Amino acid sequence: MSTIHTDLLNAEVRYYDNGTFRTRVIEAGSGPALVMMHGGGGHAEAFSRNVERLSKHFHVICPDFIWHGLSSCPPFASGNWVRQFSDQMLALLDQMGIARASFEGESLGGWIAIDLALRHPERVEKIILNTAWGMDMGTERSGEMPSLKEASLNALRNPSRETIRRRMEWLMPLGGTTDEIVDVRLAMWSRPATREALLEYYERLFAPECANYLFRAPDLAKIPVPTLLLWTEKNPITGPDTAHAMADVIPDAQVHVVANAAHWPQWERPEEHDEVVTAFLQRTR
């Protein structure tokens, strides 16, 4: 059975620091750049099952967002603080000497992929929105939001294998949670700086004013790059109807729905994920 360690044997862990953002990156391969951005509370290991396969075709770059993992925890900006994630990704590309990249964003990462495509299209080839969050299509399963907030804050305030496992099982209720990923998340969420930053992140994320930063249909209609909506049957936040509603307004969009997966299809169904992503990225416009 593979482990995170064996999955990443051919990858490197590097740190890029431009004085504003210090970013931990799992990196492998060569060719067109593919930046894979994790969800809220997560870390680069969310894509550990995908790095080896995808690195045969692409320069795979899996960063820890600021306030997450082992990246730095700068002060939160006033106003639209979500854009700080985009600023971090642009700074990372600059430091790596990469002019343009494709971006896959899972959950929170999808929010950032949309923001990058809208505000910095000159840096974006294609985007993959993997069970993305950050948009208001009127299809959200709002009943899941309190349970996500409660599970997240409880695990941060009382980090243990039990509380972390419950949080991971919210992501993967169909059985994808392993002891290893629980241990990695526990190590990350037990770091004082990360814990304090994530507690503030979740308070801001669930604050009423955060709704002002969500994207809506008129925004999505302006996405100028090819877009893959990679969704799942059992996504706890939004179902496949959201992906199809988004595809109806994004000019160049396609939908792929993964069966028997929830909020981490790249982990729950890695082979299918990688096959679909590779085909999309290698498709000519």
Rank of each mutant, 00 (worst) to 15 (best):
V13W: 15
R14Q: 14
I181F: 07
I250Q: 03
A253T: 08
I4W: 01
R216L: 03
G69Y: 02
T6D: 13
A217V: 03
G110D: 06
K149F: 13
E12G: 15
R191D: 12
F103Q: 00
T3E: 08
N158A: 13
P224E: 02
W267V: 13
E106R: 09
A33L: 02
A261M: 05
F58Y: 08
L108A: 06
T242H: 13
R157I: 14
V277A: 02
M188N: 10
W133K: 08
S160I: 08
M137W: 05
P265C: 04
L108V: 02
I114F: 00
N235M: 08
T238Q: 14
T6G: 02
L228Y: 02
G138L: 06
V255R: 06
I127C: 04
L186P: 10
D252N: 12
L186M: 03
A151M: 13
F21R: 04
A46D: 15
I127M: 03
L214E: 10
G176C: 12
W133Q: 09
S71T: 00
R14I: 15
N260W: 12
L108E: 01
L230G: 05
A279I: 06
T284C: 13
E233F: 10
E144Q: 14
F206R: 11
H244M: 10
V25H: 02
A11Y: 03
F65C: 03
V277P: 04
E271N: 12
V277L: 00
W267P: 14
R285L: 15
E104C: 14
E122S: 07
T238W: 10
G31C: 06
M188Q: 07
G239K: 00
I66C: 03
E125P: 06
D115W: 02
E104D: 08
E271F: 07
L230A: 06
A44Y: 03
V25C: 01
A197Q: 09
D241R: 12
L205Y: 12
G176K: 00
E104S: 11
L54P: 01
H43Q: 14
K222S: 10
E203H: 09
H5T: 15
S190W: 07
H38T: 06
L174P: 14
R167D: 13
Q84V: 07
K222W: 10
D248T: 02
V13M: 13
T242C: 15
S72R: 01
T177W: 06
R49Y: 08
A11Q: 00
W67Y: 08
S86M: 04
E27N: 01
W267I: 15
L116D: 05
F58S: 05
S190G: 09
R165Q: 09
F47K: 07
